[in-house]
Amino acid sequence: MEDNLVLEGLEVVYHKPDTLTEAPFHYCPGCGHGVAHRLIMEVVEEMGIEEQTIGIAPVGCSVFAYHYMKIDMQEAAHGRACAVATGVKRLLPEKYVFTYQGDGDLAAIGTAETIHTVNRGENLAIFFINNAIYGMTGGQMAPTSLCHQVTSTSPYGREEKAMGFPLKMTELVAHLPGAYYVTRQAVHTPNAVRKCKKAIRNAFEYQKENKGTCFVEIVSNCPSGWRLTPLDSQKWLEENMLPMYKLGDIKLPGKD
């Protein structure tokens, strides 16, 4: 077995973090969720805070996040992760708390909870995976779906007059005084992954300061929902998602 392979005289420079379980990810090939999960758990391991961290899983493709993240977790009702996280963090203010939510969960059904959690400046991290589609239910239109984007519930394309405009939740929450750190990242290239990990690290580190909510959007892809190969989906993300959802920091501590 490969597990028993002994590499004599070689140094381990990269390994699966111990904060991930042995369960293989159920995500589709090429999906960004696996990378995002791993980055969060790498940061938790590197900071040595696995005993002090509580995660809140959403409803959506990442509903089973707790199968993979080897920490105490709660599974919230659709859209309610921020309220659940508020309950946990208020009770355990010394602990690290984060939510992991998709665009349908955070920006449609959970809009009120998201905005008010940030507005109260709850001292927790919100990781928002935006892939512009409802993946788990089979590729329906999301609040963040692009104009003219074809989905299973916008088969002729998202027509904004009838179906509304793509919702930029991250810009929206950045206006709130309770937001301490707001950034938009991606995981589609090695460079983007490195930057994203730094942002995730910031979101955990800032909880020590108790200054407000950290909000990290991660623009991601959905090859199955978008009906594209993994490689084409990365290209589509670059060409279509990033012009609408520009990467970079939107609100930095101390700079309004």
């Binding site: 509580i54 309610r80 309220a83 309950g87 909870e113």
Partner: peptide
């Protein structure tokens, strides 16, 4: 601690989180 939630929907889910935290 006492917190005025933004809705009853939020309140009951805060209850879920805080109860789950013991």
């Amino acid at each position: 601690l006492v917190l005025q939630a933004e809705s009853e929907v939020a309140a009951i889910n805060m209850i879920y989180g805080a109860s789950g935290a013991g």
